[in-house]
Simulated scan of single mutants.
Amino acid sequence: MIKTVFLDHPKSVNETYLEHAAFAGKFSGKLFLAAGAAAIHAVIPCLFEKTASRMIAEMYAKTHNRGVQPTPEAETA
């Protein structure tokens, strides 16, 4: 049970528990900042016009293929 709760998912993205905790914590902080920029933009539209969407796109780029092993064809391309 403990292994399933704490270790299976980090292993699936090739990380230890502590590496995964650090990555997720940093990700959480970036989401918090993006939410703040979006909230300010909601009130004052000329501020942070693209900040939140840019931050989300950058975070997605870093996470959408985590744990996926590259194929030999992809490594040589």
Rank of each mutant, 00 (worst) to 15 (best):
M1I: 06
I2S: 13
I2N: 07
I2L: 15
K3P: 01
T4K: 08
T4H: 15
V5L: 15
V5S: 06
F6K: 12
F6H: 09
L7E: 10
L7A: 09
D8A: 04
D8S: 04
P10D: 03
P10S: 00
K11L: 07
K11N: 05
V13I: 01
V13H: 00
N14K: 03
E15F: 02
T16F: 02
T16H: 03
Y17M: 10
L18G: 01
E19D: 08
H20R: 01
A21C: 11
A22Y: 07
F23W: 06
A24N: 10
K26L: 08
F27M: 10
F27T: 09
S28Y: 05
S28Q: 09
S28G: 09
G29C: 11
G29S: 06
K30E: 10
K30D: 07
L31P: 00
L33C: 10
A34L: 07
A34H: 07
A35N: 08
A35I: 07
A35D: 06
A35G: 11
G36L: 12
G36E: 06
A37K: 12
A38D: 09
A39T: 14
A39G: 10
I40F: 04
H41S: 03
H41G: 02
H41I: 07
H41L: 03
A42M: 12
A42I: 04
A42T: 04
A42W: 04
A42L: 14
A42V: 01
V43L: 13
V43D: 11
I44D: 10
P45L: 05
P45I: 01
C46D: 12
C46Q: 15
L47Q: 10
L47I: 14
F48G: 05
F48V: 08
T51M: 11
A52R: 01
A52T: 03
M55L: 14
M55C: 09
I56L: 15
I56T: 14
I56M: 14
A57H: 10
M59F: 02
M59E: 15
Y60V: 10
Y60I: 08
A61F: 12
A61D: 10
K62M: 04
K62E: 13
T63H: 13
H64Q: 13
H64N: 13
N65P: 04
N65S: 15
N65F: 01
R66I: 01
R66S: 03
R66T: 00
R66C: 00
G67N: 01
G67D: 01
V68F: 06
V68R: 05
Q69S: 11
P70Y: 00
P70D: 06
P70A: 00
T71H: 04
P72L: 02
P72F: 04
E73C: 04
A74W: 03
A74L: 03
E75K: 12
E75T: 10
E75D: 12
E75Q: 14
A77I: 07
